[in-house]
Write a protein that binds this DNA or RNA. Structure first.
Length: 561
RNA sequence: UGAGGGAUCGUCUAGUGGCAGGACGACGGGUUCUGGCCCCGUUAACCUAGGUUCGAAUCCUAGUCCCUCAGCCA
């Protein structure tokens, strides 16, 4: 069971008092005008999670009332993302556009009750009549039209007699209301635009404030959860339902998710995609669910994350380290361990026979013995990580350096005797080491210990692959906090993507399936990219690094120096 | 300067009149064939000022700061 929060407290009480006959009915109501991101995941987990925990149901409802922005492509991507996250709406897949006829009838009812009128004012005029935050608005000259005239005009709006923007249907509330939203809000506008589901059946479309509450009402929602920016809308939500005297759910607002080093506004995300700054909506650096999925995150990791961050009414920004922790936790338990060398440095085992090779046993996951083991080839020429060798070992260095002995994971102890350099550049291009045949499998009978254990691959057997290393898309903790005139895109991390074309991995990985996840020993978790991999030629995305204690030690050593 | 909301460790979040707890991070240690995982420990908070009370994060009063709203978007 998820930790408690103020919404659970409300539902607990409602269940106890029988307010909704013990029912819990929620809904996730996206507009199909873009891709879902990690912020939506919070809402999805909340709505479906609550319904699940209280024995209720959660609907998937598309709030598709603005045909100029919506499409089936978005509907499909949203459904795929919700399903991927692990939630099931069964047959309850609803569309506000399916309610258009009933919504129209409700509007007519409102007109007949003298609670709505057709206004001929232009958008500009409506804005002027609305007043300001501190001054009241004034009534439209068309506000006093008779019910009959309003009915006639509204019918003709529907019939397509008028141009876009010529007239709107407005609720007749109070032009002096302190809440601007209550100053005769627009209920219907004319848009001669084809809708992706209703095609050309309609040329008038209902506004959010009219549609959402009534859709909730139609679906007998009990708790209508939305984000804080809709607090102002609640008064109107309640007004519409009261005016029509229909079933009346309770709207409850919670704070949307913000993440450090990340932007989550739809506008900014679109800008990144359209500007070609990222490789589409599913770029592994994007906070979209499709991007996160391609990056290698698991649904369970996202769900755990959403549970951990909690739900409250205060604006807050979650440290992205918590997201990273969640995926490490899942992958540590479930990802198969393999060896990969990102920046290969050649190692020749000088006392190992040239024509010999052997296979060594390697466990697939120490966290899960049932994952079994595999055999990996060993031979005279190997690759190790360039970073694992230093000509001059710093303090606390456990790895390879001249004269140092280390363990090759699952293999042998080796001792570095010589670093061969390029005569021109002075760069170390090869290491000459000797191995101890008595340490096969990585154990020494004489009980001597080595501090360091390195990952490696056999040169002759290794497969060359491309690996993509990702870092936060934004260097700044809060990319939204930009000085006047500055563009948020200036905060983009120039090193957020690093492509390494010449990495070496264990031979078995040549056939790794797209989407499959591994731990590259001592490096991090990696996932086979579904977009750029080809059969026999996988491309690996780094999901997240392993925690790196040595990097911290080194950093603090540098700071002291 | 209208209306509606919100302030608890560095971050996120519990607590609703009775020992301010958890998670992440940071720091230190133990363990280890991954400088991973795991384990142990340390650090560290009630926006301010009054009041009520035996006792206040919680109730009252007055402030301060932050967020949202002037789309025919959602």
């Amino acid at each position: 069971m998820a930790p408690s929060n103020f919404i659970r407290a409300i539902i607990d009480e409602d269940v106890e008092t029988g307010k909704w006959d013990g029912r819990v009915m929620t809904r996730f109501p996206p507009e199909p005008n873009g891709y879902l991101h990690i912020g939506h995941a919070k809402s999805i987990c909340l709505n479906f999670g609550l319904a699940n925990d209280f024995g209720g149901r959660c609907n998937l409802r598309f709030d598709d009332t603005d045909p100029s922005k919506e499409s089936m492509e978005y509907v499909e991507s949203i459904k795929a993302d919700v399903r991927w996250l692990g939630f099931d709406w069964q047959d309850r897949e609803y569309y506000a556009s399916d309610y258009f006829e009933r919504l129209y009838d409700y509007a007519v009812t409102l007109i007949k009750a003298g609670k709505a009128y057709v206004d001929d004012l232009s958008p500009e005029e409506i804005r002027q009549y609305r007043g300001t935050l501190t001054e009241p608005g004034k009534n439209s000259p068309y506000r006093g039209r008779s019910v009959a005239e309003n009915l006639d005009l509204f019918t003709r709006m529907r019939d397509g007699e008028f141009e876009d923007g010529a007239r709107v249907l407005r609720a007749k509330i109070d032009m002096a209301a302190p809440n601007l939203l209550m100053r005769d809000p627009t209920l219907y506008r004319i848009k001669h635009v084809s809708h992706y589901r209703t095609a050309d059946r309609w040329c008038i479309y209902p506004m959010y404030d009219f549609t959402h509450c009534l859709s909730d009402s139609i679906e007998k929602i009990t708790h209508s959860l939305c984000t804080l920016e809709f607090e102002i809308n609640r008064e109107l939500y309640d007004w519409v339902l009261d005016a029509l005297a229909v079933y009346h759910p309770q709207q409850i607002e919670f704070a949307r998710l913000n993440l450090t080093h990340t932007v989550l506004s739809k506008r900014k995300l679109i800008e990144l995609v359209k500007g070609g700054i990222v490789d589409g909506w599913d770029d592994p650096r994007m906070p979209t669910l499709s991007g996160i999925r391609r990056r290698g995150y698991t649904p369970a990791a996202i769900r755990n994350f959403c549970e951990r961050i909690g739900v409250a009414k205060a604006n807050s920004t979650v440290d992205i380290a918590l997201l990273e922790h969640s995926v490490r936790e899942d992958l540590n338990q479930n990802a198969m361990r393999v060896m990969a060398v990102l920046n290969p440095l050649k190692v020749v085992i000088t006392n190992y026979p040239e024509d010999r090779q052997e296979e060594l046993e390697a466990d697939n996951n120490p966290e899960n013995p049932s994952a079994g083991s595999r055999r990996i080839p060993f031979s005279r020429v190997l690759y190790v990580e360039r970073d694992d060798f230093r000509e001059e070992a710093p303090r606390k260095w456990f790895r390879l350096a001249p004269g140092r002995e280390v363990r090759l994971k699952h293999a042998y102890y080796i001792t570095c005797n010589e670093a061969v350099k390029d005569e021109q550049t002075g760069e170390v291009i090869e290491l000459h080491c000797t191995y101890d045949p008595q340490t096969r499998g990585g154990w020494s009978q004489d009980g001597r210990k080595v501090k360091g254990t390195l990952h490696w691959v056999s040169s002759a057997h290794a497969v060359e692959v491309e690996v993509r290393l990702y870092d936060h898309l934004f260097s700044k903790e809060d990319p939204n906090a930009v000085a006047g005139g500055e563009d948020f895109k200036e905060g983009i991390n120039p090193d957020s993507l690093q492509i390494l074309p010449n990495c070496r991995v264990e031979p078995a990985l040549a056939d790794a399936k797209p989407g499959s996840r591994y731990q590259f020993l001592r490096l991090g978790y990696f996932c086979v990219d579904p977009k750029y991999s080809a059969p026999g030629k996988p491309v690996f995305n780094r999901t997240v690094t392993l925690r790196d204690t040595w990097a911290k030690i080194e950093k603090s050593q540098k700071n002291k120096a």
